[in-house]
């Protein structure tokens, strides 16, 4: 319980959907199972009838919004930019958490909220077509590399390895070629790197451990303030241990699924902060 006595049941989550989003139901249940009050909100509802500031957190789910036309997430981002840009900017500035998974990560990057170096919502990175030129769908191992800046992973120890499923065709994180080194240094200095693809030993490795050829094996990052977070793999798909592919082969049956802690972390942040 936070200083104001806020409970999980007081926390309202806006899960934003449009045509082609998926896994929003899994995301909804992930929050509901923890006692929070999620709501599936269509972008049109948010533009016309609802107020973003009625919620404590904005989540953009995975999927193939608007058929992935133009580029994955580009049209969803353009729609948000055209009608909600002021609200979202203020929401982020006031410290409310914004999270994107898979397609949601692509939307946040296309919106310019991630990596968010200049705070002016300029596009500074891209999630582009996988090196393999195909849809990569498999469990991936992610090493948590954040030192405590990211509000979505505060409860995960640095160095811990999680198994979360990846399912995307456009997940290769890239910076502009001529600014790669500069931007990477900024990511590290600001503690913005959250997850990196690793092998069984916890070392950064190539394909298939890194399913898309992502620069610096980046799987998830946050903004400099830590309240905007995006990742390609799906934490909402492994809320329970039995959703892990190796469930029957391991002795971890009584543990939680590896994705659950992401939702717990953000709820804890909201309870403490608001």
């Amino acid at each position: 319980m936070g200083e104001n006595g806020m409970k999980n049941s007081d926390i309202k989550i806006c899960i934003l959907r449009i045509e082609g989003t998926n896994c929003e139901d899994e995301m909804y249940y992930s929050f509901e199972r923890l006692g929070a009050k999620p709501e599936l909100v269509h972008l049109k509802q948010l533009i016309k009838r609802k107020n973003l500031f009625d919620y404590h957190c904005l989540m953009i789910p995975g999927g193939f919004s608007t058929g992935d036309y133009v580029r994955a997430g580009a049209i969803f981002a353009a729609l948000i930019k055209s009608r909600l840009v002021k609200e979202i900017k203020k929401f982020v500035e006031e410290g409310y958490p914004v999270g994107g998974v898979c397609n949601g990560f692509q939307v946040l990057v296309e919106l310019g909220l991630l990596p968010g170096f200049d705070r002016k919502m300029n596009v500074e990175a891209v999630l582009t077509i996988n090196d393999s030129n195909r849809f990569e769908c498999r469990p991936t191992l992610l090493k948590h590399e954040n030192n405590g800046n990211s509000v979505f992973t505060k409860k995960i120890k640095k160095g811990k390895i999680l198994m979360l499923p990846s399912a995307h065709a456009e997940g290769k994180f890239l910076f502009p070629k001529n600014r790669e080194k500069k931007y990477l240094k900024r990511l590290i200095d600001n503690d913005q790197i959250v997850f990196r693809y690793v092998n069984e030993k916890g070392e950064c490795a190539g394909y298939p451990w890194n399913p898309n050829g992502s620069f610096y094996n980046i799987a998830g990052i946050c903004n400099p303030e830590g309240n905007v977070f995006g990742m390609m793999p799906h934490p909402e798909r492994v809320f329970y241990r039995w959703q892990h592919p190796d469930w029957t082969r391991t002795n971890l049956k009584n543990l939680d699924g590896d994705g659950k802690v992401v939702f717990e972390s953000v709820l804890e942040y909201i309870r403490k902060r608001f």
Binding site: V70, R71, V126, L174
Partner: peptide, 9 residues
């Protein structure tokens, strides 16, 4: 600049 191309790539 607003939609069709991503300046990064």
């Amino acid at each position: 600049r607003k939609l069709l191309a991503n300046p990064v790539i």
